[in-house]
Design a protein around this nucleic acid. Sequence first.
DNA 1: GATGGCTTGTTACCGATGGTAAGTGTAAGG
DNA 2: CCTTACACTTACCATCGGTAACAAGCCATC
Lengths: 122, 122
Amino acid sequence: MPQLPAFDVMTATCPSRTSLARIANKWTAMVVIALSADRMRFRDLRTTVDGISAKVLTETLRDLERDGIVIRHVYAEIPPRVEYELTALGRTLHAPLQALGLWAEEHFADVLAARESYDARQ
Amino acid sequence: MPQLPAFDVMTATCPSRTSLARIANKWTAMVVIALSADRMRFRDLRTTVDGISAKVLTETLRDLERDGIVIRHVYAEIPPRVEYELTALGRTLHAPLQALGLWAEEHFADVLAARESYDARQ
DNA sequence: GATGGCTTGTTACCGATGGTAAGTGTAAGG
DNA sequence: CCTTACACTTACCATCGGTAACAAGCCATC
């Protein structure tokens, strides 16, 4: 009953690969994880996604908006207020990206140990 | 009973973020997905992960080896034979990355529609 | 009325990364 | 002795990620 995937990311010319390239990205992952809790304004995203620059956050959000993963709510106020929210499509992305983030947190000790061992061998 | 994560990828200085940066990458995702089926030699990986260059594949595999996700088996033969295999740690990465690939394949039609709608608005 | 602050960006710039194309080394086969 | 096979290297260029400074518009303060 689940439709078979009509696309194959392993094929270079398959358009689904452009989609994979966008979501397989650390900034995308962190922004989507942050927004899955609640809609947020630009400034709050900058503090939640620690270390992201205004430029990169703007670009990431524009790309996610273009791909239908995020909606942008602009309020005509002074100072300006812009809120970002996951779409229904964006919410389907939460579980996979959250899993990636959790993997990084849970397995980093192993990764670190492997790195030290590797570097010692070289 | 599950240990609480001692690391937080949302913190810029947290070392787990370097780990997230590595796995949240399209080439990493495709190589791990390819290797999850079976161990493979370099040349077969190049054809399975369609479109990857020798240089990028070499770098990706070196990084994955350093992080303990892949093991490299070198056979002293002519012409050379090198096989790559997921470690136990690498196999724990399969499910999250496979989920990402499936998302890209299953939702690309939505992404494409959103893109066309966005571009028409601008 | 000039100054500075608030917020959401934009611009200029530069170093790092991703990507292509060609070359390297070794030994068997013709 | 020239080609082929394989797993890389190297040189080189384009694109991306990242920093720092500035723009716009109104308010409050000095």
